[in-house]
Nucleic acid binder design. Structure first.
Length: 745
DNA sequence: ATTATTGATTTTTTT
DNA sequence: AATCAATAAT
């Protein structure tokens, strides 16, 4: 939705044009804390941008004295652009960005106060995993304990966001597992600091520390920012809240916008109490509620409301719309995911034939893995599409390889990048040699380029691989003298010198040409960065790349249908939306089955998904879903049961056999098969029921119900051998099964 | 010491 | 499907 404004009105009137009463009030609110509870589609972004413009135009606040925090870089860009449309280029002086980008900006200026040597480098998720891998290996902690880099990473990241330190984490519940993690955590942090590295979580934590330990710095920023605005406040975590508090407490000019019903990042440490307790945190806060929805039809809102209503821990609110009822929400029950894909493709074709633009459609799913069948169907139906997320461009191996060289130019202490660059392409030195060299350099406090050059001279370790490493280091050192040149030039130089194309080809992978295309794309990315106003230094480019996220790709992507996860869809809207894979175990995801809070979050996720739709909403589910290696019958999502039946137009599986939506393929074993069940029940179900084993039955998400043959071990880690009819005997961890008493006789 | 091959394990969501 | 660790081959 664009801001269409009458150019003849004076500026303030233009800024206030087309606002309802509450929106107007939010925009003109002067000093003091303000909480805007903005329901889905209630014009939240409009309020935020107008408010920014109004502060500058009417209250005379200097743009650089406003801090506006958004959830994604894309949202930041959009906000800046929309303010610029009202105010012109002064808009670019506002500090707009994600928490991470803004923190990095502040940290870069003051890094020495925090003990950095001046090379502050952002470690992305993969760099983190690599470093955890090193730590686990060297501490001999991974072996036997089953502690994997990813587990350590997620546990520690979560704890960091909750503002625990390793000590507190350990003390919280002293178990061997936690102690191990705490130990890894300390080693990891030390190792990271040693190389001037900071991970995503550190960007926030260090900023908070910077403010707490340096009153002068804190004071500077607190004075500087006369107004602080935070979007998507329901998804901020504890650290972010503390940062905001430090910056805004003195003057209390804090405006936050959010919707507790759309809080979907709890797993990442988002703390919903931030928004629920805002009035307590900032006394005297004004609270405004935007409850009129301008986006969706009445039918769509009814469905969304029916499901979110079930949640208990929420601020009660009634989202209403003056829009018409529109078309009824459709539910399609597919036999399997291929049919689901074909159905959606068919519906989109129909919509396009009626004049709908491809970009007006979105297909949403719970997990990335679900995109494939849709892609297949779209290719066959010749529907242009794009998939948002999955493997982000900057995460690709070939891209990361090249970035490793560039990072070394900026920070020669970057161990992870050195390792990566040294090994790709292979130059006669293997992991062992490189590891040894790294250990030596660390012991002597040398940077890795210097160390590599020296090692060859000293002949450490006697490895034949040292000479080529030294050669690489020497070349990079010379190149670093040219680090001031445009990033794309440096990339090209690296690609040429190491013959990266040759290496890709030699790898013998069939897709080497695609990979090389990505290399060229990276050069293009650098070029466009150089043309932007963000600055043109290599370090700047690397920072931007590090903070780049999947969703940021969304940028006007032309005439295509969009496929993405519900998480990625937050804040977006489309004419017609398909919410797919509505099956128990998928959406809601299994992981939420045993936790009430997580289940509430899944429900909010469903709410977010449905409220993306403007005109038409369709829901789909499959009876049978094939995943990775195998398949299984799926029960229909419990969310569908929350929707009054007269709100849904049901299609598929003989219009869902009567009224009870789709009869589940495999029903819980506990109640014996009833006689009055429909005769055309699927066979698989009967199969599952015909075996009448004594003893235990095990229920599995994918395989359905089977007979337990043996149990090995105890607790959740026990291995259970189960005979699943139709699937054979499988060994499965107890944690993935629910055991039930079998029926006798 | 390095690379190639096999085999196991995996995915929920992401700044 | 794809990545990662353990094992075998060079």
């Amino acid at each position: 939705m664009g801001d269409r404004l009458d150019p003849h009105l004076d500026l303030s009137s233009r800024i206030l044009e087309d606002l309802n009463d509450v929106q107007h009030e939010a925009v003109v609110h002067g000093d003091g804390p303000l909480l805007v509870l903005a329901g889905a589609g209630s014009g939240k972004t409009r309020v935020l941008t107008r408010r920014l413009a109004y502060l500058i135009a009417a209250h005379g606040v200097e743009p650089e004295r406003i801090l506006a925090v958004t959830f994604t870089n894309k949202a930041a860009a959009e906000m800046r652009e929309r303010v610029a449309r009202l105010l012109g280029e002064t808009a670019s002086r506002i500090w707009v960005g994600t928490f991470h980008a803004i923190c990095l900006r502040m940290l870069k200026r003051h890094q020495r106060l925090l003990g950095f040597q001046g090379n502050l480098t952002v470690f992305d998720a993969e760099d983190q995993i690599q470093l955890y891998r090193r730590v686990l290996k060297e501490a001999n902690l991974g072996e036997g304990t089953g502690l994997k880099p990813r587990d350590a990473q997620s546990a520690i990241s979560y704890a960091k966001n909750a503002m625990l330190g390793p000590d507190a984490f350990e003390a919280a519940s002293p178990s061997p597992g936690r102690q191990r993690i705490a130990k890894v955590w300390r080693m990891y942090d030390a190792r990271l600091r040693e190389q001037d590295g900071a991970d995503f979580d550190d960007l926030l934590l260090l900023t908070l520390r910077l403010l707490d330990e340096n009153p002068a710095v804190a004071d500077t920023y607190a004075r500087r920012f006369q107004h602080v605005l935070v979007d998507e406040y329901q998804d901020t975590n504890r650290v972010q809240f503390e940062i905001v508090r430090r910056l805004a407490e003195a003057h209390g000019n804090i405006c936050v916008v959010g919707d507790d019903d759309q809080s979907i990042y709890g797993w990442r440490g988002a703390d919903i109490t931030n928004i629920l307790e805002f009035e307590r945190h900032f006394p005297g806060a004004a609270v405004l509620r935007l409850e009129q929805n301008y986006r969706s039809t009445g039918s769509i809102l009814d469905v969304a409301n029916a499901v979110i209503r079930v949640n208990e821990g929420r601020k009660p609110k009634t989202l209403w719309t003056a829009n018409g009822r529109g078309e009824a929400v459709r539910l399609f029950l597919a036999d399997d995911e291929e049919q689901e894909g074909r159905y959606v493709a068919r519906r989109i074709r129909e919509g396009m034939r009626r004049g709908g633009a491809a970009s007006g459609f979105a297909v949403l799913y719970r997990t990335h893995a679900q995109s494939r069948p849709f892609e297949d169907a779209f290719i066959r139906a010749e529907i242009p599409y794009r998939v948002i997320g999955g493997v982000s461009f900057y995460q690709r191996r070939e891209v990361k390889d090249l970035l490793a060289y560039l990072r070394l130019l900026v920070n020669p202490f970057d161990e992870i990048s050195f390792r990566r660059a040294a090994l790709a392409p292979r130059r006669g030195a293997g992991e062992t040699t490189v590891d040894r060299m790294i250990a030596d350099a660390r012991a002597r406090g040398l940077d890795y380029l210097a160390a590599a050059e020296e090692a060859a001279i000293a002949g450490i370790g006697g490895g034949r691989g040292l000479a080529p490493l030294a050669k690489m280091a020497h070349w990079l050192r010379e190149l670093s003298a040219r680090a001031g040149e445009p990033p794309h030039v440096l990339i090209e130089e690296v690609v040429r010198e190491v013959d990266y194309a040759g290496w890709l080809r030699a790898q013998g992978e069939s897709d080497w040409e695609d990979r090389y295309a990505h290399v060229l794309e990276l050069t293009e990315g650098a070029r466009s960065y150089e043309g932007s106003e963000e600055g043109t230094t290599l370090a700047g480019f690397l920072d931007q790349v590090a903070l780049y996220a999947n969703v940021d790709e969304v940028a006007s992507g032309g005439e295509r249908v969009t496929l993405m996860t519900v998480h990625n869809a937050k804040g977006l809207e489309f004419d017609q939306v398909f919410v797919t894979g509505l099956e128990e175990g998928l959406f809601p995801h299994v992981s939420a089955w045993s936790d009430r809070h997580e289940m509430e979050e899944e429900r909010r996720l469903f709410y977010v998904a449905t409220t993306r739709a403007r005109l038409k909403l369709e829901l789909t589910a499959c009876r049978l879903r094939r995943r990775i290696n195998y398949a299984g019958g799926m029960d229909v999502s419990r969310f569908l049961a929350d929707i009054p039946k007269d709100l849904l137009d049901v299609e598929g599986v003989a219009a869902a056999v009567g009224t009870g939506l789709m009869p589940p393929l495999v029903r819980s074993v506990a109640p014996a098969a009833r006689v009055d069940e429909e005769p055309d029940e699927p066979e698989i179900r009967r199969e599952a029921a015909t075996r009448r084993p004594r003893g235990l039955l095990a229920r599995h998400v994918r395989y359905g119900v089977g007979r337990v043959l043996s149990v090995d071990g105890a607790g959740d880690d026990a291995r259970v051998e189960v005979d699943f009819p139709g699937w054979g005997v499988k060994k499965i961890l107890r944690a993935y099964l629910s055991l039930e008493k079998g029926e006798q006789g």
